[in-house]
């Protein structure tokens, strides 16, 4: 028991070691990413402000992440709804197939989409082609989150609303939607975070406009860019912790609202 606890703490240190280094080097007044540290500086953060190529990449990534998150969540709502409410032939197979991107190596997804888009349709690669790929890989995560929201929704709540005279649409608007809203918000946030960080698919499907990870990838080859990337990484870590905390709060609120006991994390 004590040994197990020590192990758990050691494991957490292993998990957090790389992230803990980020701020050290981001505020380090030296161009080499190594110890010993050289002193405190804000200049790498200031450098972020004066790198227009990065700004473009961030804007591209934000556009892609917002669009993919909305699309993946809308598709996820359909799948979660079908899963929770209806029985139909091949249901398990169909829902399992939709979840496949979760276990497919991302390079396969990237390559196969590239083949279809470039070789078959001869479409130009753009931000939209990245959105197509990101929606595909965010969808299973959205479904996993929304499934628990829809499963926790007692079917007789909707029947009660119909029984009290509401139309199906108003039932959805007045009862279903408010009750699954926390799940929807949390699905949007998680999908957004995944898309924002995704590299390989974007690497294959992006055209002349790089996303933020594609930009970071390119910069990792140049030692003089590294401190700025560390600064960027620090901001990203802080941002995702905030986003995840908000997502978690919404998830818990959803459980509380549905009167269900908390059983664990997002997945």
């Amino acid at each position: 028991m004590r040994g197990l606890k020590l192990y758990a703490i050691g494991y957490l240190i292993f998990l957090y070691a790389p992230i803990a280094l980020l701020p050290l080097f981001a505020f380090n007044d030296g161009t080499v990413i190594a110890f010993p540290l050289q002193g405190f500086t804000w200049k790498w953060f200031a450098g972020l402000a004066t790198t227009p190529a990065l700004h473009d990449a961030v804007i591209n990534s934000l556009l892609i992440a917002v669009t993919s998150a909305i699309l993946a969540t809308l598709l996820g709502i359909c799948a979660a709804r079908a899963n929770a409410r209806y029985r139909f032939p091949f249901k398990t197979g169909i829902l399992g197939f939709i979840m496949v991107p979760l276990v497919l190596p991302e390079i396969i997804v990237g390559v196969s989409l590239l083949v279809v888009i470039a070789n078959i349709f001869s479409m130009r690669l753009s931000l939209w082609t990245v959105v197509l790929g990101h929606t595909l890989i965010c969808m299973p995560f959205a479904i996993a989150i929304l499934n628990s929201a829809f499963d926790n929704l007692d079917a007789s709540l909707e029947e009660a609303a119909v029984d009290l005279g509401e139309t199906p649409w108003n039932t959805f608007r007045l009862v279903t939607l408010p009750l699954v809203m926390p799940g929807i918000v949390s699905s949007l946030l998680i999908s957004f975070t995944i898309s924002l960080d995704e590299f390989i698919i974007a690497f294959f499907l992006t055209g002349a406009e790089p996303t933020m990870p594609v930009y970071i990838w390119a910069q990792l080859r140049f030692p003089q860019s590294l401190p700025i990337i560390m600064a960027l990484g620090t901001i990203l870590v802080a941002l995702s912790i905030v986003l995840l905390t908000v997502a978690e709060i919404f998830r818990r609120r959803g459980l509380a609202r549905a009167g269900v006991r908390d059983t664990g994390g997002f997945l």
Binding site: D154, S156, L157, E159, A160, A161, D163, V175, L179, R257, A258, G259
Partner: peptide
């Protein structure tokens, strides 16, 4: 109807 689970909107 009064439902078995009451279906009171939470």
């Amino acid at each position: 109807m009064v439902f078995q689970s009451y279906a009171v909107f939470p």
